[in-house]
């Protein structure tokens, strides 16, 4: 049955990449959901790059843009936490568009995390203490997928609603030209 084995191996190799994409982690205790748990000495609003050493970084774990589940959860949270209220389905309105190539504060996961947690000048509120850290990372992954910056096989597909924008998985990547505050 050599052929059977060979075919099985080929099929297995093809889907090995699937293991990370399909991971679903449910148990994520989060610290910053409690407003009182801030480390002493953290300043409130810090536009621009995240303060060194005071902010969780993507490389410390917790951020996973290779998991379709995390990004899909981020998409749900985007709707539930009313990001659409200012950013619409990515086209922007009161807030800037999230699906174009203008990343005012940068498109790296750390930068987007800082934007959400610390807020930014001109109206982006700080969600520190409101949104648990694990969920912020999910939102970060989703926002990056809105600009087409995650792999297309983990990006979300169209949503079951009125078509607001093309499905994230079919968008061209929108890398930032340069960091330019508006």
């Amino acid at each position: 049955m050599k052929i059977t084995g060979a075919i099985g191996l080929a099929a297995a190799i093809v889907v090995v990449a699937g293991c990370e994409r399909e991971q679903r982690e449910f148990d994520k205790p989060s610290i910053s959901s409690n407003p009182r748990a801030q480390a002493a000495g953290m300043s409130a609003l810090q536009p621009g790059a995240p303060g060194r050493g005071m902010q969780p970084t993507a490389s410390a774990g917790g951020y996973n843009e290779k998991s379709a589940y995390e990004i899909a959860q981020g998409k749900q949270l985007y709707r539930w936490y009313n990001c659409v209220g200012c950013h619409a389905q990515g086209g922007g309105g009161i807030g800037p568009a999230l699906m174009d190539d203008q990343w005012i504060y940068g498109s790296t996961p750390d930068a987007i995390f800082a934007t959400i947690v610390e807020g930014r000048p001109n109206g982006m509120p700080s969600f520190r203490g409101r949104i648990p850290e694990a969920q912020v990372w999910q939102l970060v992954a989703y926002v990056r997928s809105m600009g087409g910056l995650v792999s297309s096989d983990v990006a979300p597909n169209r949503s079951d609603g009125l078509l607001g924008a093309p499905p994230e998985g079919l968008r061209e990547p929108k890398r930032p030209a340069e960091n330019k505050p508006k």
Partner: peptide
């Protein structure tokens, strides 16, 4: 404190409160 312990996958996150 941890809804995921009772309903893994539910949409409510865990809260580590004092």
């Amino acid at each position: 404190a941890d809804p995921q312990k009772f309903k893994p996958g539910v949409n409510m996150p865990a809260h580590l409160l004092p």
